[in-house]
Amino acid sequence: MRKFRQDAMRSFGSFGITFIWVTVGSWLIFMILLPQLIMLDFSFRPFLPLRKIGGPEDIYTLKNYIVLFTNEFHRAIFIKTIWTSVLVTTVALFVCYPIAFYLAKVARGARFAWILMGLIIPYWINELLRIFAWQLILADAGVLNKLLLAIDIISNPINFRAGNSAVIMGMVYAYILFMVFPLYNAIESLDRNQIDAARDLGSSWLRIHRRIVIPYAKPGIAVGCIMTFMLAAGSIAAPQLLGSPSSFWFSQVIYTNFECANWNQGAAYAMVLAGLCLIFIFAMLKIFKVDLKELAK
């Protein structure tokens, strides 16, 4: 730490360091901490007409939080959001693990570069556009239905948007990198000889993954799951564009509340979502027996 300070001193000078502290500090305080605190404050106040704000009725209350339990409709959406996000995370893990393993331990040279480009280039366009593309693919008269019809696998177009399948597919695709990279990172550092040694001792590939690769990749799996889950649970574009019009995502409920000027309710739900993500993080760390310290690597 002292060395770090000396190095910083040498390259920026004391004025420069003060400048960095002040800018980073105020950015943290005004752009992150303060808005969150204001939201927290909002979430504990009742929704009142403008003239009554600051009046005798403006007292702290848990009402906005209790609504989640009394409003059956919101509660169902909340549970569905959690459940579907878990599903998205699980599917993403199963899809991305082979990709990450292939990239980290099998692919070489040109093939590695091609796959990497295939993964990264779609991220050069906006998330919204990527999800629009899926809308085109999954629509009743979309590419996928046309293809399936043409090769006679189905006789009537499938309505992907009816259930959650379109949302899940869209999200898995939209967040694939957030799962692939932590996994790749973890697996890449695994010594190739460990795999060879297990194989030499007679192990099948399945067991090599179960006993050698996956235990080693645990921190990466935890990070990938956390990122994907948080992105999925907080997602708004994918459910809006790919979900059936009659089913909502929890983030859409929050959005609607803010839109209807009920900031207090919106803030409370936003806090619930944030709390959910925190619980998920700790659950993952517990399940995978990973230290917070290891995640920093």
Partner: peptide, 20 residues
Amino acid sequence: IGPNKRPTAMIFQNLALFPL
């Protein structure tokens, strides 16, 4: 015949013990 099916066992240059 693959390495998992041969009557050989290899001691690797870096040993490759399973650290976990």
